[in-house]
Structures are given as C-alpha cells and as structure tokens.
Nucleic acid binder design. Structure first.
Length: 845
DNA sequence: TTGCCTAAACGAAAT
DNA sequence: GTTTAGGCAA
C-alpha cells in the first residue's frame, strides 16, 4: 500500500489550523497570582452570527429527528447519557446538539470541548458542525483525548519539570527504552520482557498509579515485585530526564496536573462549559478521571470576576456498552453502565432506531449480542425492511475464502456498488496476506487501513528521531537512535563513553557530543560525533532564525527545510540510495514522502512549528487515513472498523480461535468482548453482509484446522443463506463431505454434522506432521510465491490455462505495463480479471 | 565496528 | 511466515 500520510495530515491538521480566536493566553498560569479569567480573551468576532429568528434556527436543527434524538439534542442539564445503539444517528445528534448550543448562543465555541476517539471522527464532527452553523464553529476544541491532553500539557508542562517541547513516546519507543532498562537491571532473569513490562506499566498508568503509590501496594517480600518496581522507577525517571511522555502519561499526567494545581484546573473548568464525549464505553479510568476533573465546579476564590461560576461544566456522553471493545486497553465498561450513579440526576436517552442497516442484519446483531448476559436489553430496529439475506460461505482454506470474497466483490461491483462502499473486516492483521494475494491477482483495488503504519517504519522513525533531537535535545533515546544512523562508526562503546562523560561532568548527553574532542576517542569517531553535533546545531539555528523571522509561514516551512537538511547532510538519504539492499530504495522514497508530508503540514498550518508537526505525527491513528474517495475496497481489523459503515461488509475468519481469538479465552470477560467485536462488525453493514470462514487456515507457518465460530450458531439459521455451509465443504475435486463443527455439536441440524476429520477433536486443531491427508486434499490453491510472467503478451482471442481456474479465453486486455489486466472467460470458473504479470497462467498455443 | 550468516523466538486488537 | 538475537570473520 502506498502512503497516504499526506492526506492524513492534511485532514488531521485542519482541526488545529484555525488558531483559536478565543484561545487562552499562551501560558496563562505561568504566574499563579495573575490568573486571567478566560472570558477576557474572547473577541466578539467569534460570536455566532445573530440569527434573526433563533427559534427558526432551532427548528432547522431539529428537523428530521425522531423523538428520542430530539430530546438528546435539546435536553439541558448537568449530565446526559445518550445510549446510542449502532447506526442510531448519534453523530448527527452530537453535531446538532453542539450546533444548537452555538446557534442559540448558549455557549461560545471556545466553551465547548468535544472528545472523540480518532482524529477522523473529530474532523468529521467539526465538518458537520461547520456545515450546520458555518464560521460560528471556529474555536471549539474537537479532538481526541490524547490531543486535547497534549494541548493542555504543552501549556502547563513547566509546572512539573517538563518543558513544552516534550517528546511523545509511542509504544515502540516505550519498548525500546524498557528493553534497555530491563537489560541494565537484569530484570529478564525475573521474566520481564519489554512487552509484558510495558503492558503492566500501561495498566498501572491507566489506573492512575504512579511509582510512589504503586510502591506502597507491593509485597516487599516478593523479589519479582521489587524488581518490577525498580524497572518502573527507572523508566519513569528516564522519561522525565528525556522530557518525554508516553501515550498513557498524556492522560494520567494531565489528571495529576489538575489535581496538584487546582488553580490550573480551575482555568479549564471555567473555560469549558459543555463537554461532550463520544464512545464513552471505551474510556479507561484515567480518561474518566480527566472528565471528572474537567466537569468539577471550579474552586471558589480562583475566579477574579465577580460573576463567579460555581457550577461544573455540563457533560454529555454518548456510548453503547454493546460496542465496548477496548478492555484490553483498559477501557472500563462500568464508566458507562454506572454513569447514572456517578452523576446523580443524569438524564438518560435511549436511541434504538437504526438508520443504517436492514432488519435482517439487525436481527442477526440483536441475536448475537443477546447472548451477552449482564447487559441492559436493547433491540435495534429499522423501518427500512428485511433486505437481503446474510450470505455465508465456508472455504477450504483462507485463500479459497478470499477468492470467494473477490468474486462476490466483482458481482457487487457489476451490480452497481462502488468499491469504496465495500469493506472487508478481519480479526488479526495477519489475515490480510491471503486477501491481498487474491485481490492483487483479481486486480481488485484495495486499501489496507491501519496495520503497519507509515510512521512505524524504521526509516521514518529514524528521520523523525533527527527532528526530535533538534526539537527536544534532552531526548536521549532519539539521540542514541541517530548516533550511528547512518553508520558512522559510533558503536555502543562510544555511546557509553559519551554517557559517562555527561554524567561525570554534569552536562547533558547532547553537550557531551559537542565536547567529543575531550573524550580522548579516536580521531575518526571524534570527528564523526562533532560533525553530527554541528549538524544538529545548524538545524536548531535554522529553526530559531525562522521563528524570529516575521514571515507568518516561516516556522512551518522551516520544518521541511530542516528535515531535508538533516537527511541530506547527515548522509542518511545517500546511504539508503547507495545501498545494495533493493528495499532501501523504497525506504529513501519513504523519507522523501515524509519531507512531502512536512510541506503539506506547512500549507495547512502556517503557524505550526517543529513541535506541532511532531505532535501530529505522534498522534495519527490507524483509522485516520480513511479516504473513501479513492475507489478502493477497504480492508481493516474489526477494531478499526468501529464507527464506520459500508453498503457491503465481509466479515472474514469467523472461526474459533480467531473470533473469539484464542488469547481471549483466558481473560475474564474475553468471550463477551469478542462477541461485541463481532457485533460491531455486523452492524457496520448497510445493505449486504457476508460471513465467511475457512476450514483450514495457514498461520504461523503451519496449516491448522479451523472450527466455525460459536457465534455463528447464535444467528438464526433463517437469516443466513449458505453458499457453502461448514458442513458441505468439499475438498477440491473431492466428493467426500467433510463436516467440521463448533466445539459442541448443536442439537439442531443447522448445518449437517458429520464426523470430525480422523484424529482431530475439538481441542486438537492442529494437524500432526504425520497426517498429510488434509494437506494433499486441501493444498493451498495459490502458491505463496509471487510469480512474474514478465513480458507475457496476451491479446483478445488467446487461449490460456490458469493453475486454479483451468482453461479459458482472453476477451480483452486493459491497463499498462505491470498493471495489464486480462479479462478471461474460463470454461468452468466463469469470467475473471487477472493481473497478467503475476497470475498463475500459461498461454496455450 | 560492520556485515553476513544461522538459529531461535514469536506470533491480538491500538491511542 | 517473519523478525530478531547471536556468533564469527573481515
């Protein structure tokens, strides 16, 4: 997949672009005694255009709403919970609620804080509010939890030992740091790994534990706990020394800030009068606490105006406990289920009418989710009618399943559904491989959302580390990363020498680099360090000049210039271009792409500096680069799919151990969460829903037998039309019907139940090496190798033979070069489109 | 210190 | 299956 980062940023940026006219002074709390009441800063320019007839405006915003939606838009009070079933129009309700507040002049834009989970959702909300009320929407904070917190922390960082140019460590950075620490403390002897440690630290931070509070809870007789405490302490100190926050810190540190400095909190409590939170079911404890802090009534005496506001902000939360799928990230479903207890007097509005899907799809969703006990009963319904039946398909293998999907997509396309209205969902990113292989061969345009992200690529992290080293010289992790990238002959030994020099002389690591000649190292190494150091200084100076310049866009364009400078003068780009590794060429292109991203950033954010740029790239999310206008089928995980909708949806890999994932079995509430995930997937579909699975799935290099997911049986049989049911899958060319069944044979004859493959029982899903029968019977229909037919020339009329589809005749050839596509009519397999370059075909004479 | 090789480990979801 | 850790020669 090619990079879409430019588009991502372009959009994400527009959220921050209109500098808030009513924004708070840049560091209002630097002087605690001179707290400025926020109201002073609001220019009248942001006042909504006064509508001559506010009531008319109101009714315009209420148009087309059902009674419950209307209540949700109009209710005014301290706390409102909108329980919004899937597809019940909650975004519409949220945006209209905001628009109404603005239009009725109940709130200034700057008094509104709306929190969403992704930048994309934030951008969409902003657009929709803007469409309703125009310019009056400017100045609202519509952002994710994380970007809102970064914004606050950058302003207030100096209160607790950080500076505003702090770095944000993503999970990769976090693990790299932990890896070092675990090694230094030899904590691996106690079973600590970067991944389990980061999970544990993350969990603690989401519970608002810090090193001190955690140390009070541990059993001091348990050496393992003591070692972990050491790791945690060292990690925390390393972050502070590097002037860095990890993802979880962004939320928890903001809460700590508010708790430690009530006068700081008071500013935000006074400022935000209306707080709206989307996807409330996915908030974790830290996020919940943040909301609590923000909606608290400001402490008396902190407001210098006579017209002291004593009430806390009004809170509107929207959510659906049936769609809570982020428990693994610390989301606490109780935040929403106990909302009424948390906020006494809260109004609850239930939205059950669905405007998205057909009744068949909703009935399936309702049936599935009703198997989760311990939930408030809620039934989605629609007025649009039953619609098509759900289509089921069982393939012999993942490739077979993928082929079915590709064929169905072509059928849908021929029937008039655009590729961009079609999506394929899967549980794990690893499942994309089979889909991609088939889609490429079928010449189906597709896009993978999320997965390995642009910003996680090593070369991009390298390039960004250069920028970070300039923006935040305290960040030793970034410095270490670039120290020997490209290869300069600066190895671990030299690095240690620099670090101990810094420590012994009480200077920073960065300063030690400047004084490298005092280290007594070899001349080659010394000059390498000095050169790098000088380059970083040069970049820093260039940025300072730009900031000092009076041209409005100077600092933004400087980011790109500085990145170019760093990449060129460091020799990084050259080293990639001159490398023998053919992949390095693509890496160099990616670096160029990143430079292009900075240019795009400059265009969208004339005032943005290097720190703003780095913040943006740290917080882009998997779902953010969705661009439905590209005419491609969208592939994504079920998690990424939340909040999206498509005309046709393919839910793939509906198998035991995949959905529910085998890892979920050990976790309390695991199967229920997996069921919600399935539910989320089902409810993304507007008109057509396809459920597919495979009988064998190649994973981890082995082929394993797959069982139909238990959730399949929860869907009433009459809703599904099985093209090939799990009981009727025949091996290719074989006649024997092989039945596979879910763990327990259902008493009903939902699908014909025969016997399990010999030797395979429910608990034993892996073929032993000896039993080769399944492999031969269901050998992958597609070889994993990508072939290259090179310059195979085909013209209409040619006869060809395909490895899977057999003989056929070429009807037409379209496309250019490597993308030439043959339209072939096969004798038995029907019409297919094939990418000539890689299709397993031979020309017949 | 780098680069190349083999051996072994490791496989979920993501702001 | 892919990525990473470690060993060894240049």
């Amino acid at each position: 997949m090619r990079i879409t980062a430019t588009a991502v940023l372009g959009r994400a940026m527009s959220e921050a672009a209109p500098r808030l006219a009513g924004d708070m002074a840049s560091s209002p709390s630097s002087n605690a005694d001179a707290v400025q009441p926020v109201i002073v800063g609001w220019p009248t320019a942001t006042v909504p255009e006064s509508s001559s007839d506010e009531r008319a405006g109101g009714s315009r915003l209420l148009e087309g709403l059902n009674p419950q939606q209307r209540i949700a838009v109009e209710y005014r009070g301290q706390a409102l919970l909108i329980v919004a079933g899937a597809g019940s129009g909650k975004t519409s309700v949220l945006t209209r609620r905001v628009a109404l507040l603005l239009e009725q002049r109940e709130a200034w834009p700057s008094q509104i804080l709306a929190i969403t989970f992704t930048n994309k959702a934030a951008a969409e909300m902003r657009e929709r509010v803007q469409a309703l009320v125009g310019q009056a929407a400017q100045g609202m904070w519509i952002s994710t939890f994380h970007s809102a917190c970064v914004r606050i922390l950058r302003r207030e960082a100096e209160h607790f030992g950080f500076t505003k140019n702090f770095t944000i460590y993503d999970s990769g950075d976090q693990r790299a740091l932990l890896k070092r620490i675990i090694k230094e403390l030899e904590a691996d002897a106690y079973g600590f790994t970067p991944s389990n440690t980061s999970a544990k630290i993350s969990k603690l931070k989401n519970e608002l534990s810090d090193v001190e509070s955690y140390s009070r809870t541990i059993n001091t007789n348990d050496p393992q706990e003591l070692v972990f405490l050491q790791v945690f302490r060292k990690y925390t100190r390393a972050l502070a020394d590097a002037n860095a926050f990890d993802f979880d810190d962004l939320i928890s540190q903001t809460v700590f800030l508010f708790r430690a400095f009530p006068h700081v909190a008071a500013q935000y409590q006074q400022r935000f009068r209306h707080i709206l939170v989307d996807e409330y079911q996915d908030t974790n404890h830290a996020q919940y606490s943040l909301i609590r802090e923000l909606t608290r009534a400001p402490e008396a005496g902190t407001d210098q105006l006579a017209t002291t506001r004593t009430e806390g902000a009004s809170l509107t939360v929207v959510g659906d406990s049936d769609q809570s799928i982020y428990a693994f990230r610390g989301a606490d479903i109780r935040n929403i289920t106990e909302f009424e207890r948390d906020f006494p007097g809260a109004k609850v509005v239930l939205l059950e009418q669905n405007y998205r899907s057909t009744q068949n799809i909703l009935s399936a969703a309702n049936a599935v989710i009703s198997n989760n006990f311990d939930r408030k009963d809620k039934k989605l319904w629609t007025a649009v009618g039953d619609g098509e039946k759900i289509v089921g398909f069982t393939g012999y293998s993942g490739h077979d399943e993928a082929q079915f999907i590709a064929d169905e997509i072509e059928k849908l396309r021929n029937a008039g559904t655009a590729y961009s209205d079609i999506a394929v969902f899967y549980r794990t990113n690893a499942q994309t491989r089979a889909l991609e292989e088939i889609f490429i061969r079928a010449a189906l345009p597709y896009r993978i959302m999320g997965g390995t992200k642009f910003y996680e690529r090593a070369e991009i992290k390298d390039a960004l580390a250069y920028l970070v080293s300039v923006a935040n010289p305290a960040d030793i992790m970034a410095l270490r990363r670039i120290l020997n990238t490209p290869k300069r002959g600066i190895g671990p030994a030299t690095e240690t020498a620099l670090a101990s020099f810094a420590e012994n002389n009480g200077v920073t690591f960065r300063e030690a680099m400047r004084r490298a000649d005092a280290l007594g190292l070899g001349p080659k190494v010394t000059s390498a360090i000095l050169q790098l150091s000088a380059l970083l200084d040069e970049a820093q100076a260039a940025l300072d000049d730009a900031a000092a310049a009076d041209r409005p866009t100077a600092s933004a364009t400087a980011v790109g210039d500085v990145l170019s400078l760093l990449m060129t003068k460091s020799g990084y780009l050259d080293s990639l271009r001159n490398s023998r590794d053919p992949q390095d060429e693509a890496r160099a292109e990616n670096v160029d792409e990143l430079i292009a991203v900075t240019k795009e950033f400059a265009k969208n954010n004339p005032d943005g500096g290097i720190v703003d740029f780095l913040t943006e790239v740290s917080l882009v999310a998997a779902a953010d680069d969705l661009d439905d206008a590209t005419g491609s089928v969208s592939l994504m995980t079920l998690h990424t799919a939340k909040g999206l909708e498509y005309d046709a949806v393919f839910l793939t890999g509906i198998e035991e151990d995949l959905l529910p994932h085998r890892m979920s079995a050990n976790e309390p509430g695991g199967p229920a969460e997996e069921r919600r995930l399935f539910y989320v997937g089902i409810t993304r579909a507007r008109k057509r829903l396809y459920l597919s699975l495979a009988m064998t799935r190649a994973q981890y290099g082995e082929t394993a037998v797959a069982m139909p997911s238990r959730y399949l049986q929860e869907i009433p049989a009459e809703l599904i039309e099985w093209r090939q049911s799990p009981g009727n899958v025949n091996g290719r060319g074989g006649t024997q019907s092989r039945a596979l069944n879910a763990r327990r044979a259902p008493s009903s004859d939902r699908w014909s139940v025969r016997s399990l493959p010999e030797g395979a029982s429910a608990g034993d899903t892996r073929f032993s090496g000896g039993s080769s029968k399944p492999e031969t019977a269901w050998a992958n229909r597609i070889t994993a190798k990508v072939r290259d037919n090179g310059d195979l020339e085909l013209v209409p009329g040619d006869r060809i033979s395909h490895a899977d589809f057999g003989p056929g005749r070429v009807n037409a050839v379209t496309g250019e070069g490597a993308k030439r596509i043959a339209h072939v009519q096969f004798e038995s397999a029907g019409a297919k489109k094939l990418l000539i370059k890689i299709a397993p075909i031979e020309k017949l004479d």
